[in-house]
Amino acid sequence: MVIVITVFVGMLVCLQLPSLLKLGSRRDLLTYLILMGLAYILMVLRTVGVHLPYVTSAIVRVFKAVLGRFI
């Protein structure tokens, strides 16, 4: 499954990279690569079964701790 994800993300990068290089903006290229890298890492972690905390559950816990009486 990790191979499938690697190929999938690799394909996406290969498809968009030429237009980004043509654009000639280093900031665009860097932002794209950082965000794609982050997405790739998160996808691989999920695939190999690493449990990451649920984001909204954390928000719920904070709000319940602060506004418990009203919720």
């Binding site: 903006s25 900031r27 665009d28 965000l35």
Partner: peptide, 14 residues
């Protein structure tokens, strides 16, 4: 950023 299309694919995945 110069082009806002740059972020469409990463934003989709994230």
């Amino acid at each position: 950023l110069k082009s806002d299309r740059t972020l469409v694919v990463p934003a989709w995945l994230l």
